[in-house]
């Protein structure tokens, strides 16, 4: 069975590395990006068959944060990437999301991996 792909967008190198390993352990192929803009560039470069089945997106990042990335997808790339489910993750207690549609799921850092994996599994089916 073909492994599902996840785009992990996270600016903290340590979290990116650890979460990447955890997702691979859970059976996913992982593509990483270090901010929203980098994620967008990565998405555009990928061929259709290599596009991720899910995006795991950090909220607070330099250059382009999670919400700005979501808005850009919705406004400029809805037809191409609009169907990819997004899970938003944040260490903020009360992240405020305005001007874009709600993500498929939200997880507060530090996450319980079993819960995160279970949600990912449901969303990539």
């Amino acid at each position: 069975m073909k492994r599902k792909k996840i785009l992990l967008v996270e600016d903290d190198e340590e979290i990116r590395e650890a979460l990447s390993e955890a997702l691979e352990f859970a059976g996913y192929d992982v593509i990483t990006a270090f901010n929203g803009k980098n994620a967008l560039d990565t998405l555009i470069e990928l061929s259709k068959e290599k596009r991720p089945n899910l995006i795991l997106l950090d909220f607070m990042m330099p250059v382009m944060d999670g919400p700005s990335f979501m808005k850009t997808i919705e406004i400029d790339y809805k037809a191409i990437f609009g169907q990819i489910p997004i899970i938003l993750i944040s260490a903020l207690s009360n992240p405020v999301l305005t001007g874009c549609k709600a993500p498929a799921a939200f997880f507060k850092k530090p996450m319980i991996l079993d819960e995160l994996f279970s949600k990912i599994q449901t969303l990539v089916k």
Binding site: D12, E14, I15, K109, P110, L113
Partner: peptide
């Protein structure tokens, strides 16, 4: 800021 290193530590231990 406190949760950021905690997240990595918790991923390590859970993994």
């Amino acid at each position: 800021e406190l949760k950021t290193p905690l997240t990595t530590l918790l991923i390590f231990s859970q993994m």
